[in-house]
Design a protein around this nucleic acid. Structure first.
Lengths: 127, 127
DNA sequence: CCGAATCCATTTGGATACTG
DNA sequence: CAGTATCCAAATGGATTCGG
């Protein structure tokens, strides 16, 4: 989390304000429908494909496959295939994936702290 | 940011893992194409509709209107209309919106710190 | 058991024209 | 200036089918 220090707090404001492409690129990956759920379910260690299908509520085979492939391409998780019968494939977080999990948790914490406030305001305005 | 302490770190993991609907609800709002950009551009104070159109690169009238309305319904920003000629409308962050800006900045900071790493891995795997 | 491929419905978002 | 309305293209995602 301490990272390289390449981006300070002020820079973050600038990025949010000025650099649309950059913010979008990370949010598109992290904020899509399933990525964060999959990452969250790998927090305790490796999981098999079929396990994830059961744990992540409502995900389809297609989206699980696609999500796993994209996260793998970004280096957020690792895929380990065992040449057995029946075949077995395990997915686990890389250090990079774990660091994202921590950061993303802050956003979830924020949502938890302000959930009531948001819902209340939404009702008032007919949302 | 210290919040109510209602959700501790462990709970966040649980939320990411178990509660799909809840995580989705906040990420759908925050992680869409424009919300965070608009919020970022309100960090220095009130902005007018036409200002935002110019500052946020590539946003259309429609999406700016929609985004502003949704963020307003959630209580993240405030809309102030002045009965003048020509008409003038100003948008500014609420305390709730400011707190989100801080939290979201952490995610942007993470993206900045690991941008190179992610890109490199993406190239290797043909992403 | 793992996952790719195809088809299809829904959603998202841009371009344009128009109103108070 | 600050929106609204309509139409349309692209992306997203689910159901199903098939292969290794």
């Amino acid at each position: 989390m301490s990272g390289t220090g390449a981006a300070r707090a002020q820079d973050c404001g600038d990025l949010l304000a000025d650099n649309g492409e950059f913010v979008r690129e990370i949010l598109d990956r992290v904020g899509d429908k399933w990525s964060l759920l999959v990452i969250g379910n790998l927090r305790d260690g490796p999981r098999r494909y079929s396990e994830l299908m059961q744990i992540v509520p409502g995900i389809s085979q297609r989206m699980l496959t696609v999500t796993l492939r994209l996260l793998g391409e970004d280096g957020l998780l690792r895929r380990e295939a065992y040449a057995e019968v029946p075949p077995r494939v395990e997915y686990s977080l890389t250090p990079l994936g774990e660091s994202l999990l921590e950061t993303a948790s802050a956003l979830v914490r924020w949502a938890g702290d302000h959930q009531v406030e948001i819902r209340a305001h939404r009702e008032n305005t007919g949302g």
